[in-house]
Nucleic acid binder design. Structure first.
Lengths: 197, 197
DNA sequence: TGCTATAACTAACATTTGTTACCAGTTAGT
DNA sequence: ACTAACTGGTAACAAATGTTAGTTATAGCA
């Protein structure tokens, strides 16, 4: 019937993907129907297909957008000339900030990537593995230089990354501390837990 | 057609729920169909209903079984006469051990409880909230007694509990360290991160 | 041997699902 | 003013979903 009120400076496709991210977070990818999504966008389900080609594509866009963001950040960190523990702190702070400010998409891509299908599934799995190995390598470097406690590096990675995903609880809690306070607390505990002495 | 080979010492219903736990972990609750489940059990979908009353019931049983286990454990910990930091360590060790040895059910109840429906949903939400508050109280006690760093207690809880759920990655990894090693590493990092000095 | 409870089967149901085909109105550029 | 690109709607689809009804065959016990 009608053309569109182009909201703000975002395209219609972006609006759909943003809305989808919210629903996928709240209900999960599988439990969100295209009709649910359409209703939230304010349109009929079939109309969504003027902007996206499938439900799967939405998840792909979300997952790869986030994956690229984290990959290019760790590139910069790796290139920097600082101590291992500082590098780990930088990675951790980036994760925290992303979870605080781009909650929906980061959370969804972390929890729902399993619903991708090949070749996207294999691609993401590889990227995740590589990413974790890169962090583990920094930690091992830190252990050799005695900056970091003698621990199993993959275990440390697992703790770091999963602890960060707990920021979901913070978002849903009534009386939140500020994002900055949250960040400092998490750094205190996690970097404090890794650091030697 | 045929009667049953009653496997081991578990009832048919228990077999179904165990199998469901595995599938719910792998694919998620919503993405697992009753026909998928039936196939894994080795039976037609309709036959499942001789043992369970609905798909929802399976999730309920899993969630409340796990919730009860954690609730009664923290009761014991609370009653004990030790330092706050020792109590936190006990809770943490219990979580780790449960995730190591009862992976499927613990993981599923932690990730999929959102798909419960009322009144079960409200019930679980309340239980989870209470549980986290009890841990937070112990941490706050530890802060007052100077056993624990001056941090935001809810944030510490969030880190602890989510870090533990990372044990999923450990389960799926090829070259695992032992469960005992995993536990010690996690305790080193997390208790080390909380402890004062 | 015959009775009863159990647990499997087949068939079918009403919904819900993702998606397509097709049409209609609006907007922008010529 | 005419056209083309968009973006919306309606109707419909085939497949998949959770679940029920009704039936049959087995196992254990009287």
């Amino acid at each position: 019937m009608a053309k569109i009120r182009q909201r703000k400076n975002s395209t219609r496709k972006e609006t759909i993907i943003e809305t989808a991210a919210r629903l996928f977070r709240e209900r999960g990818f599988s439990a969100t129907s295209m009709r649910d999504l359409a209703e939230q966008v304010g349109v009929e389900a079939a109309s969504l297909y003027n902007h996206i080609s499938s439900k799967a594509e939405i998840l792909q866009e979300l997952c790869f957008k986030v994956a690229n963001k984290f990959m290019s950040h760790i590139d910069k960190v790796d290139a920097a000339d600082t101590s291992a523990i500082k590098k780990i702190e930088a990675v951790l702070r980036f994760h925290i900030q992303q979870m605080v400010h781009h909650y929906e998409e980061v959370y969804v891509s972390d929890r729902e990537w399993k619903h991708l299908t090949d070749p996207y599934l294999s691609n993401i799995q590889t990227q995740r593995k590589v990413y974790r190995q890169r962090i583990a390598s920094i930690i091992e470097e830190g252990i050799r230089k005695n900056e970091i406690k003698k621990i199993d590096a993959p275990t440390a990675v697992l703790i770091m990354l999963h602890a960060v995903s707990g920021i979901e609880s913070w978002h849903r809690s009534k009386q939140k501390i500020t994002g900055e306070m949250l960040e400092e607390n998490m750094i205190t505990i996690l970097i404090g837990g890794l650091q030697n002495k």
